[in-house]
Simulated assay, not measured.
Amino acid sequence: MRVAQMAPVFDDITFRYGRRTPVFSGFSLTVAAPATVLLGPNGAGKSTLMGLAASQLTPTDGALSFNRLRPEGRKQAAYRKSVAHLVEELSPTVQVLVSTHQTEDLAALYAQVIVLDQGTVRFHGSPAEFQALAPEATGDRERAETAYARLVGQEI
């Protein structure tokens, strides 16, 4: 798969808060779609992943890059400027990663769905593939909620 230049890439990331069990251990993910929604229950690691992507948190192992920059040493300022640019100037070439509990209009708003649970990617695909996990449900929202419940064993 060809990775977009602006794609956030998490490569074999390990992160923990203090001495607790790691939130992520050997976690790898490339967010290559222009608009990606990150779903998961409370405690799944969504906010931690966003904090890592913004370089507010630092992984204990592994590598993180965005726009081919890594948030290390003297390059941290350039990395953060690149991430800030992402928020300020949305265009078709910019990657957007959104963390939410909302499942309405997934297909209309996002090109990719990622479901996290306990620091593990349970699903990574298109909104159509996600909703296809619940073909018996009627309506986009119900299909998304049923698919989510099947993946993580609970409702959104």
Results as ranks from 00 to 15, higher is better:
Met1Gln: 14
Met1Lys: 14
Arg2Gln: 09
Val3Met: 06
Met6Ile: 00
Asp11Lys: 10
Thr14Ala: 06
Thr14Tyr: 04
Phe15Tyr: 15
Tyr17Asn: 13
Gly18Lys: 14
Gly18Glu: 15
Arg20Pro: 00
Ser25Ala: 14
Phe27Pro: 09
Ser28Ile: 02
Ser28Val: 01
Ser28His: 02
Thr30Tyr: 00
Thr30Phe: 01
Val31Leu: 14
Pro34Asn: 12
Pro34Ala: 07
Thr36His: 06
Val37Pro: 12
Val37Glu: 14
Leu38Ala: 13
Leu39Glu: 03
Gly40Ser: 13
Gly40Trp: 07
Pro41Cys: 02
Pro41Asp: 02
Asn42Leu: 13
Ala44Gly: 12
Gly45Lys: 04
Gly45Asp: 02
Ser47Asn: 00
Ser47Arg: 01
Thr48Leu: 02
Met50Phe: 13
Met50Ser: 10
Gly51Thr: 06
Leu52Glu: 07
Ala54Phe: 00
Ser55Phe: 09
Ser55Gln: 02
Gln56Thr: 15
Leu57Asn: 13
Leu57Tyr: 15
Leu57Arg: 14
Thr58Met: 11
Thr58Phe: 09
Thr58Asp: 02
Pro59Ile: 08
Pro59Val: 10
Thr60Ala: 08
Asp61Arg: 09
Gly62Gln: 01
Ser65Gln: 08
Phe66Ser: 00
Phe66Ile: 05
Asn67His: 09
Arg68His: 06
Arg68Leu: 06
Arg68Ile: 04
Arg70Gln: 08
Arg70His: 05
Pro71Val: 07
Glu72Thr: 15
Glu72Ile: 14
Gly73Arg: 03
Gln76Ser: 04
Ala77Arg: 07
Ala77Ile: 12
Ser82Trp: 00
Ala84Glu: 15
His85Val: 00
His85Ile: 00
His85Cys: 00
Val87Ala: 04
Glu88Leu: 13
Glu89Val: 10
Glu89His: 15
Leu90Ser: 00
Ser91Glu: 06
Pro92His: 03
Thr93Phe: 09
Val96Asn: 01
Val96Phe: 02
Val98Pro: 01
Ser99Gly: 10
Ser99Trp: 06
His101Ile: 03
Glu104Ser: 10
Asp105Gly: 04
Leu106Arg: 09
Leu106Tyr: 03
Leu109Gln: 09
Tyr110Trp: 05
Val113Tyr: 07
Ile114Tyr: 01
Leu116Thr: 12
Asp117Cys: 12
Gly119Gln: 15
Val121Phe: 04
Val121Tyr: 11
Phe123Cys: 08
His124Gln: 12
Ser126Leu: 06
Pro127Asn: 07
Pro127Asp: 02
Phe130Glu: 11
Phe130His: 07
Gln131Met: 15
Gln131Ile: 11
Ala132Val: 04
Ala132Phe: 05
Ala132Met: 06
Leu133Asp: 02
Leu133Thr: 05
Ala134Asn: 03
Ala137Asn: 03
Ala137Ser: 10
Thr138Leu: 11
Thr138Trp: 05
Asp140His: 08
Asp140Val: 01
Asp140Ile: 04
Glu142Arg: 05
Arg143Phe: 01
Ala144Asp: 12
Thr146Gln: 12
Ala147Pro: 09
Tyr148Ser: 09
Leu151Ile: 06
Gly153Tyr: 05
Gly153Phe: 11
Gln154Arg: 15
Gln154Thr: 09
Gln154Glu: 10
Glu155His: 14
